[in-house]
Design a protein around this nucleic acid. Sequence first.
DNA 1: GAGTGGTCTAGACCACGGT
DNA 2: CCGTGGTCTAGACCACTCC
Lengths: 238, 238
Amino acid sequence: MNKFSVIYETLKKKIDQGDYLQTMMLPTEAVLVEEYDCSRNTVRRAISQLIDEGLVYSVKGRGVVILEKQNTDELLLNLSNFNGIQALNSNQKIDYQTKVIKFTKLTITDELHQLTSFPIGTEVSYIERVRIVNEKRMVLDINYFRTEIVSGLTEEIAKKSIYHYIEKDLGVKISTSRRHLKVEGATELDTLSLDLQEYNCVGIISNWAYTDMGKLFEYTESHFIPDTFAFVELSTKR
Amino acid sequence: MNKFSVIYETLKKKIDQGDYLQTMMLPTEAVLVEEYDCSRNTVRRAISQLIDEGLVYSVKGRGVVILEKQNTDELLLNLSNFNGIQALNSNQKIDYQTKVIKFTKLTITDELHQLTSFPIGTEVSYIERVRIVNEKRMVLDINYFRTEIVSGLTEEIAKKSIYHYIEKDLGVKISTSRRHLKVEGATELDTLSLDLQEYNCVGIISNWAYTDMGKLFEYTESHFIPDTFAFVELSTKR
DNA sequence: GAGTGGTCTAGACCACGGT
DNA sequence: CCGTGGTCTAGACCACTCC
């Protein structure tokens, strides 16, 4: 464990325990340097992580202010979670079923290029899957995987975890991903595949994932039903 | 302008111009130190910003990989933007109208505490406003402002920008905010206030904002109609 | 083994807040 | 004015990638 991570974890726990309730401020950097016997940069790095997380806010000349607590809502997903819907599973110990409803190969046309950002002519695996939680069809995943990078995909693999296959079996390293979130009217496919009940809209997360060589290898849309998911985001002043 | 910001901006421009197309890598840190005549930490800080933004990805032992470009979609809002719906205005030069439909004071009950996180008994201004863009009622804002901090609110101010009043007139410094995003069925208020057409769902952004003293001073829900907004988010491997 | 990024140190100077 | 956080430097050692 990195030194700065240890300091970060410790501070986080102390904030949580209410150790700083009197002042609602962190100790000054100088004090923390003394306390953890490290350089100022290391303390600052730990504090940066707390700032990124929205737990504290730093004011030049005054100190690091602890933000008032907010009610925690256990049902939240963080959009930054790497494994999207898998996170639901691990966090909340609900297991879900996956049904593959389409599995084929496509070549990227101009229209698909607009949607996916893959270069025109790229060959991709196209997969439609439905995620069923407690017998409710909650999420429709539409995947486009670049076959040049993700080869040997089968319907069997798609039933389990494609990411596990990509990372563990193919040894592809995943670096980073960009996501969009929007609300749209339900398509015919949505209505057929999901338990929308009376609703006629879906939430859509679009996800572009890159290998550690900087190549786009996946575009995925996850269509989810209303009332079930929420996403968190933080923002800090400029 | 900070040194690291200059380096960041320069690198970003060069990436955009395709200056690094041959390798799809940034120059090594050592080269950049030379080029910008600065310390390694400063270069690293500039690169961190590019990583945070999802433009590049760093691999230990190899270098900093530039990620393939993604189609840009002009209609995107960044959830991290501080001013929420105001951003729409400035980015896209559409001006919008604001209609105040309710303006009153409330005391936080147990139920409202669950929703807003304000302590029970706190006095707040409660405001409902509709944002009309191109004659379409697109967003319903429901605000709760802590009167202890945001005093002297009037309906006149609510018609314009409450944030401008808070920051410029009251001199309250805003530090940070947390946001949630979810999709829910439309309430009766939504149906009455928004041009939902055939849709029966809304997107909801919940926003908790803090002063630079760490006090929660605002809770706001923005209900928006489907098909009009999208939000961006980045995630990088642990 | 050479070269790369990741962590950490010790110290300097500046800008801002509160008194 | 003093104490605070913000920026920047110069150098050290480690862990990883690639040849």
